[in-house]
Nucleic acid binder design. Sequence first.
DNA 1: GTATATCACATGTATATACATGTTGTAAAT
DNA 2: ATTTACAACATGTATATACATGTGATATAC
Lengths: 240, 240
Amino acid sequence: MTNKKDAITAYIENHIQNKLYSPGQIIPSESEFCRLFHVSRMTVRKALDELVAQGVLYKEKGRGTFVSQKPRYASFQCGYGFKQEALRRGFVPSTKAVTINLIKADHELADKLKVEINEALWEVKRIRCINDIPVVYVHEYYIYHQCEDLTITIAAESIYDHLAKKNISFAFADQRLEAILCPEEIANDLHISDKHPVLLMSVLAYMKNGVPFNYGLEYYVSDQLPLIQSIYNKNNGNVN
Amino acid sequence: MTNKKDAITAYIENHIQNKLYSPGQIIPSESEFCRLFHVSRMTVRKALDELVAQGVLYKEKGRGTFVSQKPRYASFQCGYGFKQEALRRGFVPSTKAVTINLIKADHELADKLKVEINEALWEVKRIRCINDIPVVYVHEYYIYHQCEDLTITIAAESIYDHLAKKNISFAFADQRLEAILCPEEIANDLHISDKHPVLLMSVLAYMKNGVPFNYGLEYYVSDQLPLIQSIYNKNNGNVN
DNA sequence: GTATATCACATGTATATACATGTTGTAAAT
DNA sequence: ATTTACAACATGTATATACATGTGATATAC
């Protein structure tokens, strides 16, 4: 059995999905949900707050709680691992031309991953495909002692899934975005010309304790796979 | 006087800033904060949850609450309006070559902004500079009836600030990212060649009720101003 | 010495309650 | 007819309490 709070969020999300609650429509008040689920108001509020934080609902003090009119794109949003994200969107992900190498951290890598210089790292190069079309060239690094049993087979599937079994998982990440002309040696692998612009995303991924575990350079053929992101305002539309 | 909750978040943030709490360090337990501030535990938890959601703190069940080791970049993060964001980062923002035009919504714009075809829109073109170097060419649209008094002077400052006075403000946005070669007519204005790759960000900004109010195409000279974003995992590093 | 049980303490979830504050429609006063 | 006051109801903030669950150190049993 799951949480009472999660039962309420699931109920509301289902109602929205099944169009029983429509965008812009007011939903039952907090007290009504209390009666509906036989729970206290604080539990209802926790459930609602979660959906407000996701942008699914919004509240107006003194009036009520409403369904947002935000349209949902069926496109790609990075950050949660390539494979999971592709599957979630209904695409077929695959990985080609995997190489893994043991290297020693140079100054830059040691600085990014917060390890000692010369510490052992996995250097992984992968070409990620969507429906067999190469869309991303990934050149990334993992800390060896966190993942000593890495193999090409694992790298061809999902390193994030593998690390999750060791309790190493992505909590947040910093992304740096640039547009560049595709480097020659990468252009070949992506089946594009080296005059082609690509989106270079440098990602530094952290565990929830803030310790980095993965640094990577991702070259997106963005006309094949436009990146779509949603951002939320912390102070949700409040003016001083 | 402010909230009790906000007093606690401010206290913790100050302690981190003044290095009284260091990254990785455990902070006082929830009960200790109760005694410290003479508040209930739920109030403390609300304050902590807010900082956890921001990635400032992280919790471990049964152990305690800790300061994240996340390094803070002093770079640019889009989404909250160009001017505010630049000022927050300590840059000097300015705007050049502003044009504003009244136009009628074509099919595409009407679809994006969820208005009728032929509805009046402001078309705004701006060149945004950081320290007098052109970094972004912005080509965007606002709904006329939401901002009838728009002027070039306002557009040269901050349209977002102006709209905030009318209670129109950014709550969330969808961003689409692509790398392209800079279109010729824009390259001149940005002082770059038309063979230069630029980062094209298409932004659709919504009010908190989910109604769109601003659609824009932003051409970033990303080697002048790399975009940096932070993303958080919703299920914060929990494995099933 | 090495397991095992237990206890203190941490966060997680949930309840019941109170009052503050913003919104809206209705009824009374002008 | 218009304004004003108020009541009903919405969300916002805060308290006090209870029990569940995970962690780690200590004391006990073997």
